[in-house]
């Protein structure tokens, strides 16, 4: 039995005004997609940022196992080490492409950046790798030299995926990556993502306010309300038989849709 990529216990981030996230426990395995669902203000982004070390935790533990099998306690990790892991082992996909992409350089440069940060110095190879990744996210390699500003919203999100996955991270954090997309564009994006997760074996933690997204993608789901996990388990089980009143509300809302 393989070890979890991420083990979270008793994690809390307290903004000091009663807001934040509290008492978070879960484990995440290789190749697994975990969705964090909940209404606006329930603490989803706070939890994600705390897991990724972008916010400092106030209590609890987050243990990450890297590719080589070494374990890191993320809540007390030195900044330099955290940034190294962020470069080499993680990805972060944001809701707004402008927060996750460099809008003023080409798609090719966007995809190549992490490789260059890791020391790759062969332009021809970088370019070929970037072109292959564009194709993997269903963008023509002809668009390699175009800037993301010339891309549709759906393409921009797919470009973010390519930019993050190019270094084959072990764990990718995503905060509402489909938030700004039309329903049909969103479906295509989720489909692509499911395929890439399957092919690469990465683990994904995705924040969404839409249980429908979780249904399409996630083996397991955390339901959050007011900074706490009110229900956690297999996504199918939550959908079939939600226990908490808030989960029941969420489920009934997507079943109606």
């Amino acid at each position: 039995m393989s070890q979890p990529v991420l083990s979270v216990s008793g994690l809390a981030k307290d903004y000091g005004n009663g807001q934040g996230c509290f008492d978070i426990d879960f484990e995440l395995y290789e190749g697994e997609v975990l969705c964090i669902v909940g209404e606006s203000g329930s603490g989803k982004s706070t939890l994600l940022a705390t897991l990724a070390g972008r916010l400092s935790a106030d209590a609890g533990s987050v243990r990450f196992r890297d590719r080589a099998g070494s374990s890191h306690e993320l809540t007390t990790l030195a900044e330099a080490e955290r940034r190294r892991l962020a470069r080499s082992e993680w990805g972060f996909v944001t809701q707004h492409a402008r927060d996750g992409l460099r809008m003023n350089v080409s798609a090719g440069a966007n995809v190549s950046e992490r490789l260059m940060a890791l020391g790759q110095r062969h332009y021809g190879q970088l370019r070929e790798t970037a072109a292959q990744w564009l194709e993997k996210v269903e963008i023509s390699r002809e668009r390699l030299d175009d800037r993301p500003t010339a891309f549709s919203g759906g393409m921009q999100q797919r470009l973010q995926i390519a930019r993050n996955l190019v270094t084959q991270p072990r764990l990718v954090f995503m905060d509402e990556p489909t938030g700004g997309l039309d329903v049909s564009v969103q479906a295509r994006f989720l489909d692509l993502l499911r395929r890439l997760v399957h092919d690469t074996g990465i683990a994904v933690i995705m924040v969404t306010h839409d249980l429908g997204v979780a249904r399409l993608l996630a083996q397991r789901t955390l339901v959050m309300q007011q900074g706490r996990v009110v229900e956690a388990g297999l996504t199918d089980q939550i959908l079939d038989d939600p226990q908490h009143p808030y989960s029941q509300l969420l489920v009934s809302s997507i079943l109606q849709a």
């Binding site: 460099r102 350089v105 080409s106 090719g108 440069a109 190549s112 950046e113 992490r114 260059m116 940060a117 890791l118 110095r121 332009y123 970088l126 370019r127 390699l144 030299d145």
Partner: peptide, 13 residues
């Protein structure tokens, strides 16, 4: 890595 982004962009253009 960012500095090489600029050089990459030079060559691409």
């Amino acid at each position: 890595g960012l500095m090489h982004v600029k050089l990459y962009e030079d060559i691409a253009r």
